[in-house]
Write a protein that binds this DNA or RNA. Structure first.
Lengths: 189, 189
DNA sequence: AAGTAACCACACCGGTAGGTATACTCGCAG
DNA sequence: CTGCGAGTATACCTACCGGTGTGGTTACTT
């Protein structure tokens, strides 16, 4: 039996780290496996031993990115919005703004969607799940805040949230997040 | 002096047509110039005679795509929402839904943004201008509808609009447009 | 002592990418 | 008749891509 590659080794972690930065900053298609291996101070052989293929590495990158964001958001809640309430919904926008801090490459998931043409790419499932999880989070936040109609409202807030990301990056509109906070306050009331 | 290439010839139009479909459906990076020339029933030589480079062809594709969308929207207004008013804002969403009709590849501009890594790509300016034009349109629609605070409200509506596109495609959420219409009605009141 | 997981160095492969060069045909305007 | 813009056909170039194979070195286990 072919052993399933285990990426969780020193070199594997370095590769994932480097791939994360490069994929996000320059785009998935624009970054070759040679470059990743080089920058991670390892070899292409090791990369393929750990991850099996570039597609699998891309999927791992997306999973890792989501995990990091979720940890970041948890920490943000813990330190800046410790009690449930409608303001936690707005706090997500604050966190997102801080999460980027300078970078203008936009949502990694949306970008990946654009680059992953094939429907059966292993990263596609990660994308969908990630967006759906974001939506579920908004609904949960509104529910625990005791807001009526949390389901429908959470979906609407999610739209605003995603739109803000697109307009800030692809649209180059600096005020997008301020507008989004205003829109969310208007919606949630 | 080097003559600026004029793409507006029979072969040039065919190339732009084919490139438009292929770039959108499969992604810019995934489509080579050889394939475009082939499908357009012409040669790579002619392609480069008309457009100069792939990057320039990409920019032309984006310009063309925006022009088509604007014509489509004008026609939609003319036949389905002939009188100014708040409902015209919602009608934009209807038009967008019809504009895609089956395709699930999302916003061509957002996708292109993800693929065009370099800041100085000739297509980047087209993207920004396109998104800003969309925003200006929403503001204009609200202004002519006599809505107070049209500036701020138009920006918010624009966020919802962009978010709906992302969530329908990358997020795979079928209800995104319905939610967007509800959100817009709630915002505009 | 043997096995094995992790790793490195390096060479190699077929395929394809964007882009250029040469040479020729056709129709049209001056 | 000439010049030229548009187009076709085809060969070619360099560069890089994802992926594989070989061989050898550590270090920890059993």
């Amino acid at each position: 039996m072919v052993r399933a590659p285990n990426p969780d080794t020193p070199a594997g972690r370095r590769i994932l780290e480097v791939a994360g930065t490069l994929f996000y900053e320059r785009g998935i298609g624009a970054v070759g496996v040679d470059l990743i291996a080089d920058e991670a101070g390892t070899t292409k052989k090791t990369l393929y031993d750990r991850f099996g293929s570039k597609d699998a590495l891309v999927a791992a990158y997306l999973r890792d990115r989501e995990q990091r964001w979720e940890r970041f958001l948890d920490e943000w809640f813990r330190t800046r919005a410790p009690t449930p309430g409608p303001e936690r919904v707005v706090a997500v926008l604050d966190a997102e703004e801080a999460w980027w801090a300078g970078s203008r490459r936009g949502c990694a998931f949306v970008n990946a969607f654009a680059e992953l043409g094939e429907e059966d790419h292993p990263g596609r499932a990660v994308l969908r799940a990630g967006k759906q999880r974001a939506r579920a989070m908004f609904i949960a936040l509104l529910t625990e805040a005791g807001v009526a109609n949390a389901e429908a409202l959470g979906a609407q807030v999610h739209l605003v949230y995603e739109g803000a990301m697109v307009n800030l990056t692809a649209g180059g509109m600096d005020s997008a997040f301020d507008e989004a906070r205003a829109a969310i306050r208007a919606l949630v009331g």
